[in-house]
Simulated assay, not measured.
Amino acid sequence: MSVTFSPDGEKIASASADGTVRLWDKKRTELTVLRGHQDAVNSVSFSSDGKQIASASDDGTVRLRLVAGLSPHPSRCQRY
């Protein structure tokens, strides 16, 4: 799994074993869940300008997504 901060420090992207990438704000509010990979996502990274997210999966694919326009899906992150 992988976690990365956006260049401006306002957002966090996390890779998940369930094949999703989750986008959070710095207050631990989940903004959206990005689906599409068919296996665990093992790497996620923001572009240097913070406008795109790249994710790589054990399914052998890499996906690029634009951050702008991602639909919000608010929920709170649990502390572990």
Rank of each mutant, 00 (worst) to 15 (best):
S2R: 01
S2A: 13
V3Y: 07
F5W: 15
F5K: 02
D8Y: 02
D8Q: 00
E10D: 14
E10L: 14
E10S: 15
K11Q: 15
I12N: 11
I12E: 13
A13E: 11
A13P: 08
S14K: 03
A15W: 08
S16F: 05
A17P: 00
A17W: 11
A17V: 06
A17L: 10
D18R: 00
G19H: 05
G19R: 01
T20G: 11
V21R: 03
V21L: 02
L23Y: 11
L23R: 05
W24R: 01
W24C: 03
K26L: 07
K26M: 09
K27A: 15
K27D: 15
T29D: 09
T29C: 08
E30W: 03
L31F: 13
V33D: 08
L34I: 12
R35C: 04
R35L: 04
R35V: 08
G36E: 11
H37S: 06
H37Y: 09
Q38T: 07
D39H: 13
A40T: 09
A40F: 14
V41H: 07
V44L: 04
F46D: 09
F46M: 06
G50W: 05
I53F: 10
I53E: 09
I53C: 04
A54E: 11
A54F: 12
A54V: 15
S55W: 10
S55H: 07
S55N: 04
S57Y: 02
D58H: 13
D59L: 06
D59H: 02
G60S: 01
T61K: 12
T61P: 03
T61I: 03
L64N: 02
L64W: 13
L64Y: 12
R65F: 06
R65E: 01
V67N: 12
V67H: 14
G69I: 03
G69V: 05
G69S: 08
L70N: 07
S71F: 05
H73Q: 14
P74A: 09
S75Q: 13
R76I: 02
R76P: 00
R76C: 00
R76S: 13
R76H: 11
Q78R: 06
Q78E: 07
R79E: 15
